[in-house]
């Protein structure tokens, strides 16, 4: 039976792996006819800021760079809905102009509705 899968991520990108893990988790749900969405809250909202650059220096020394989350998000935007909590952006001073195009701002009230409507809510 297909399910509505509501994935909430609270952990910030780069220091933690949760946002990076949540994206393929959501992207693969359609293979089982599940319908997924991701909502970024708390420190995870930093993942939607544009202009992300990764790398620790000399590529020869570091083998390869960590892929910027911005690219991962953009590549998967057509597969599922990607939300970010508006108040948590405000708290961190992230303005609308800094957000990746296609990301939907959401409220805590709308997130509550999504939790109630979903069959499964996974919090990372």
């Amino acid at each position: 039976m297909s399910k509505k899968v509501n994935i909430i991520v609270t952990q910030p990108p780069y220091g933690k792996e949760e946002v990076f893990g949540a994206i393929p988790l959501a992207a693969t749900q359609s293979a089982a006819d599940n319908e997924a969405s991701i909502t970024l809250v708390s420190g995870a909202v930093h993942a939607v800021v544009t202009g992300q650059q990764t790398g620790y220096g000399d590529v020869a020394r570091w083998d390869k760079n960590i892929p910027p989350l911005e690219n991962e998000i953009k590549n998967n935007l057509d597969l599922f809905d990607f939300y970010v909590l508006d108040r948590d952006l405000q708290k961190r001073g992230i303005t609308d102009g800094e957000i990746i195009e296609g990301i939907k701002k959401t409220t805590i009230s709308e997130l509550t509705d999504r939790i109630l409507e979903s069959d499964v809510t996974l919090v990372l």
């Binding site: 039976m1 899968v5 693969t28 359609s30 089982a32 599940n34």
Partner: peptide, 18 residues
């Protein structure tokens, strides 16, 4: 296995939690 297996388990299971 992989995430496709998880998607199937989510679809089949009565409950899924993280």
């Amino acid at each position: 296995g992989g995430l496709y297996d998880l998607a199937e388990w989510i679809a089949e299971s009565d409950k899924t939690i993280l």
